[in-house]
Design a binder for these strands. Structure first.
Lengths: 175, 175
DNA sequence: TAGTATAATGTTATAGTATAACGTTTAGCG
DNA sequence: CGCTAAACGTTATACTATAACATTATACTA
């Protein structure tokens, strides 16, 4: 039996994982969230969500716009930003401030205080929910008399997949 | 005797503090840093640093640009961005990702891993260096096999000055 | 089912943020 | 003095985001 609960589950999807399942799961979860809240997951919103989920790398609004147009759909910036605003409001995606880009939310739900690990090599942004981090930040703010409301925690570096990469031509590994 | 060492020093400057001292201290410290590194704190760079320090609220690049032009100086966006890049490189200012804006660094120096508390009412961004937060994040990343390099930690809410404000006309206080 | 209110989307225009590319000036140094 | 590198000027453009208003779709009600 694995030491679950001790060592955190790896938040970075493996290369070659079945990404179609990620997408399908996200769309199913989104439909459920919207149904429960009486909100409409319209074709446009659903399509934008699907595009955000097209990979685990955060995607910019204008890249989404291009893909919508490639669908043959009429689209302008507000088309995209409104859909993104809806998806953000319902916790279906996250905005990565340091990249001006968006990524799918791995676990839509309440009490969802997360951190992001963003690989500077492969671009993947992994969502982490570490209570010790959340609590340390909560205590730090409280001790300073700060009424904490919003948290932007974006950590960059090399993910577990990329740091293990062997350099291609005998060079030293990247720091 | 105060419980110093237990309760952290309030990172938010008081209203009506002597801000000229903040500015003067920052400029002096910057001159020292540049001298030590053999870098030039040119009049332009010095002026941009002074403008960033014109308050404790993060300032945007184009607001700086406007003020430079108000000085009568010829200036274009690259003028500002190059100076900001220099100041960032030497740890004299920080970029606040969630605001696309810049704020003076309170304590230029090495091993400077900080968090920001950003008041949504008065706009002040306070720099905090809480080792427990830094360490919790470091552990979280390490446990997930992530080689941590950069940290963006920006917390929004109400600062100690603003949360104590009494509403102006008997209304309930802001949450 | 027609009427009406609201939500969603379309459309045009513009604001705000950032950098590429190249030319000119300045400062230090042999 | 003349060279070199750094800093700065200048023009153009790319990227990100929203305001404002028109149109269409949806849902509720009478």
């Amino acid at each position: 039996m694995a030491a679950s609960g001790k060592r955190p589950r790896d938040p970075f999807p493996r290369r070659g994982h079945d990404h179609a399942r990620c997408v399908a799961g996200a769309l199913t979860a989104a439909a459920a969230v919207c149904a429960r809240r009486g909100e409409q997951l319209t074709p446009l919103r659903r399509r934008v969500l699907e595009l955000v989920w097209s990979s685990h790398q955060p995607i910019g609004a204008y890249a989404i716009l291009d893909k919508l147009r490639a669908d043959g759909r009429s689209a302008a910036p507000p088309t995209v930003y409104r859909a993104l605003e809806f998806l953000l409001a319902h916790g279906l995606i996250h905005r990565i401030e340091s990249l001006n880009a968006f990524v799918g939310c791995a676990q839509p739900g309440p009490d969802h205080l997360v951190q992001f690990l963003i690989c500077t090599k492969c671009g993947t942004a992994a969502e982490v929910e570490d209570r010790r981090v959340t609590e340390a930040i909560g205590r730090s703010a409280a001790e300073r008399g700060f009424a904490l409301a919003g948290r932007v925690i974006e950590l960059s570096g090399l993910c577990i997949n990329c740091r293990d990469d062997r350099p291609r031509a005998g060079a030293r590994s990247v720091v």
